[in-house]
Design a protein around this nucleic acid. Structure first.
Length: 117
DNA sequence: CGATTGACACCAA
DNA sequence: ATTGGTGCCAATC
C-alpha cells in the first residue's frame, strides 16, 4: 500500500516511525520515506517534521537526520543547539553538526521495525 | 492558478 | 571525489 497518496496517514506514519527510533540511534529522511513506500519523497518527511512540533506526543525529530548524518534540521528547533545536545545526551557523538559513526548509530526501520502499513 | 521553496536523495558528467 | 541537475509532493508566495 502506498500511503504517499494519503498525506494525512503519511504524516502520521512518519511521526509513528520517529517515535519508534530507539534511544541513541538515528535514521534518515529518505529511509523513512522508502519505508513508507515513496522512496524519493524524502522532502515530504522533512515537511512532516516541520509540522512535528505541534504533534502530541512530541516527535523526537532530533533522531532524524539526512543521509550523511548531518544535522541539517537543527535550525528548526527552538534552539539550534538543542538537537546536538539531545543527541549527545543519548550517547550519539556529534561533531561539526554531523553524527560521528553514523553508520553505527543508523537505525533502519525497514530492518529493525515492522509496523503494519 | 502558476511559480517557488524546502529538515532530501539519486544520477550523470 | 565534487558538482550540478532532476525527481518527489505539499505548502507558501
Amino acid at each position: 500500500m502506498n500511503y504517499s497518496q494519503n498525506s494525512e496517514n503519511f504524516f502520521q506514519l512518519v511521526y509513528q516511525v520517529c517515535r519508534e527510533i530507539p534511544k541513541g540511534r538515528a535514521t534518515s529522511y529518505g529511509t523513512i520515506a522508502k519505508y513508507l513506500g515513496s522512496g524519493r519523497s524524502s522532502r515530504m518527511v522533512g515537511w512532516a517534521m516541520n509540522n512535528s512540533h505541534q504533534q502530541n506526543p512530541p516527535v523526537p525529530a532530533h533522531r532524524v537526520v539526512n543521509r550523511n548524518g548531518q544535522l541539517t534540521g537543527k535550525i528548526h528547533f527552538a534552539h539550534p543547539k538543542e538537537m546536538e545536545i539531545l543527541l549527545k545526551k543519548e550517547g550519539i557523538e556529534v561533531n561539526h553538526d554531523k553524527i560521528v559513526n553514523f553508520k553505527t548509530v543508523f537505525w533502519d526501520p525497514i530492518i529493525e521495525l515492522d509496523i503494519e502499513i
